[in-house]
Amino acid sequence: MVRLSISRHWREKGAYYRLEGIECLDCGKRSYPPAPVCPHCGSRNVRRVKLPRTGRLLSYTITYSIPEGFREYAPVMLGLIELDDGTRLVSQLTDTKPEELRENMRVEAVLRRVQVDGEYGLIHYALKFRPHRPGGRKE
């Protein structure tokens, strides 16, 4: 049986897969997730942009009170993240441990499974954030 909506997640794939947000052509601020109006100044003069994949942790939490469907990722670690261009977002943190988390820690976006609809439904993918792994140059 399918519990999670197909279309509701499918239509967000620009944001989920590629970190698409909006940039306001009036106040210049960027926002995530994308919206028809700039949340900062109310302008409709916005364009879709691909946001930088790296940033830092402004705040984080380790959750032991797990909502239905997330037990395999417990404890669920969440971050309030500021991307390198100043855009903020809330995302799940992955490939890390509670004792590794620090404020201002560098993080990078990676595609991961976010929710799996039981044994037969869809696998919903999106970008999560993990501590920056060593190697290569920063994008």
């Binding site: 990722y73 595609l111 499974r113």
Partner: peptide, 13 residues
């Protein structure tokens, strides 16, 4: 691979 990794996420990276 971790709980949230599969061939797709590995292939993506």
């Amino acid at each position: 691979g971790g709980s949230d990794e599969d061939a797709v996420t590995i292939g993506w990276e």
